[in-house]
Design a protein around this nucleic acid. Structure first.
Lengths: 352, 352
DNA sequence: CTGTTAGCGCCTTCAC
DNA sequence: GTGAAGGCGCTAACAG
């Protein structure tokens, strides 16, 4: 029904093998026959059958990108960057039959461990060329073990596994983010401004990202001898705006004298700001607010949000390259992505 | 090397055909053998070879979702919603060998026509089960024709084509957004407040979304007899924050007496607000600002942004269902998604 | 440089 | 209810 390699071969008066060679381009073919084949391909509007070629070649051109929430720009930026490295369709090479491009497929796990595992299986089934796991991992031991097993199995079957923004596991190349260090520097900044009663709005308790950021925060507090209240002034929620809002009301209930609130990410920080304003508190005059990630909207917030910049785009680009084997593996298979403090207008010294 | 159907068959002491039938589940198999097969599958940790089964069955479980910019929440929300309908991996059915789930693959075109076409080819090559095209289309005639051709070819080869947020084309099921109507109501709202000098920051000129929103805006102006200045008070840019910023400075240069600025989307509106503030203008006291889409951050902006709400999540869900044939086609293959005015604090009557 | 020959792993009639 | 056999469309050795 659809036009096949054989049809093209017949029309170009060559063998199927020759057509295949022309199309994959990784084998010498006489220029004249090459041209004839290409014409036949165009005439017939031939499109390679992906599954068939994947079956025969035992690899596909799929690269899976797993994200926790594609509606969150944090993941959107990383995923877009990974995809931009896949050998740009639309780049110069708009070849007829096929290109060397990979197809990056972004899979939305919604933060659900089961879905994560399922997508991994799905990708294994598709014999994906590579898999990029982005964002914090769920720390439940069973799940961590299951993911590690799947990753090993994928690696064993020739699928490259890259982690972007989570702690290393065996058989995977890892780009970790310096969540702990960034968080520590952020809280140190607040302490340096003179804050002593600092609330913290954390993410879901079982995520590595949540834990590391919280640990960094507490390290800074501990170094200043302020860790006594830390637990009481911490509220967990989701990585979204509503959680930030609710958590802030709760923090205010626990300590009306707070002079600063640190949010586990910028989106939460937005909710924090909204809640404070609704309580009649000014930022930063009454309460300072800080976030994490430095998403595009953060610089535009009013006041501009103090936060920790994670080079998400760059990290995604690098993850994409690593996934394609276009970049040498970092020593030990693990590289850390730096986090940079962005001090802006939402933080200031506390009122007397 | 990898474990295959035959291995499972051997271990379960049945034929490969039987294993296949158990796994696809669409054929009667004795309960006892069924159990035996399932055990063998588990023991061997067998995972179906997707390409092979796609080849044999002549269909794959891939569903392509094309977006202009995955880092933009507008597309993130739609894409996430589409994907959530794909027969939830992580839902009850965590079967061993395979599931009925489709794998939604999100493809980032970056707004480039060539990439769009390339991805369509890539998906055709993969024999995707369906393709969802989201967001405004590029209006260049050649490109429109090329997309239409590709769509027809996809449809002809059994791939369902769904459009979400762009004008209908043949052989595709379409969910259009009421961009024109929404834009008209938004500008009417401004006119009703008493504004007469309204600037407009449009998106890229060759996009359907841009054109429709602009047309709605001008319809409202024309109805009020104010269309003389319309062209002069329109500036085109990208759908991003920086364009909004720059365009606002340009608008102010053209008419310092503007009392309102309408942005083609919320992200642009953010830039508009930033620029106005930098010019020492207050919102809405000096200048009213309005956006479009009602992205999550818009309600949290300060002041809260007046905008037009598009039910992106619902639209994505519906597009996903249509792609899977789980929802009956709308009459004529086209349905319009309503746009609702959200009047908030960023718009107010002009100063005297 | 090009053609021939085997499968890749699975699904699907067709018999039993 | 189950097995046997052929082929889906392509690639990858081999020859020549």
């Amino acid at each position: 029904m659809a036009v096949t390699l054989a049809d093209v071969a017949a029309r170009a008066r060559v063998s199927a093998a020759t057509v295949s060679r022309v199309l994959s381009g990784n084998y010498p073919v006489a220029e004249s026959t090459r041209a004839r084949v290409l014409r036949a391909v165009e005439d017939l509007e031939y499109v390679v059958n992906g599954p068939a070629s994947a079956l025969a070649a035992a690899t596909s051109d799929l690269v899976g990108v797993l994200v926790n929430d594609i509606a969150d720009p944090f993941f959107g930026i990383i995923a877009g960057a990974v995809q931009s490295e896949m050998g740009p369709p639309g780049g110069a090479g708009t070849e007829p039959g096929r290109g060397a491009e990979k197809l990056a497929v972004i899979c939305n796990t919604g933060g659900s461990p089961e879905r994560e595992l399922n997508y991994l299986t799905l990708l294994q089934r598709q014999r994906a060329a590579a898999v990029v796991l982005t964002g914090g991992a769920v720390e439940h031991p069973d799940h961590a073990a299951a993911v590690a097993t799947k990753a090993s199995r994928l690696a064993a079957s020739g699928t490259r596994v890259v982690l972007c923004g989570r702690p290393p596991i065996e058989d995977a190349i890892t780009l970790t983010f310096d969540n702990r260090g960034g968080a520590r520097r952020l809280t140190e900044h607040l302490l340096a401004l003179g804050h002593r009663r600092i609330g913290y709005v954390a993410g879901p308790a079982d995520r590595t990202t949540t834990r590391h950021r919280l640990e960094g925060h507490r390290e800074a507090l501990a170094a200043a001898g302020l860790d006594a209240d830390a637990r009481r002034l911490t509220v967990h929620g989701l990585y979204d705006r509503a959680s930030g809002y609710d958590a802030t009301l709760e923090l205010l209930r626990r300590d009306v004298g707070l002079t600063a609130v640190v949010a586990a990410n910028d989106t939460i920080a937005l909710g924090v700001c909204a809640a404070l304003r609704d309580q009649g508190l000014r930022i930063p005059e009454d309460v300072s607010v800080a976030g994490f990630d430095d998403l595009p909207f953060s610089a535009d917030a009013v006041p501009a949000l103090t936060t920790v910049r994670l080079p998400l785009h760059e990290a995604g680009v690098r993850a994409g390259r690593l996934a394609l084997g276009r970049e040498p593996q970092p020593p030990g298979g693990v590289a850390m992505v730096r986090a940079e403090l962005m001090a802006r207008a939402s933080t200031a010294p506390p009122r007397h």
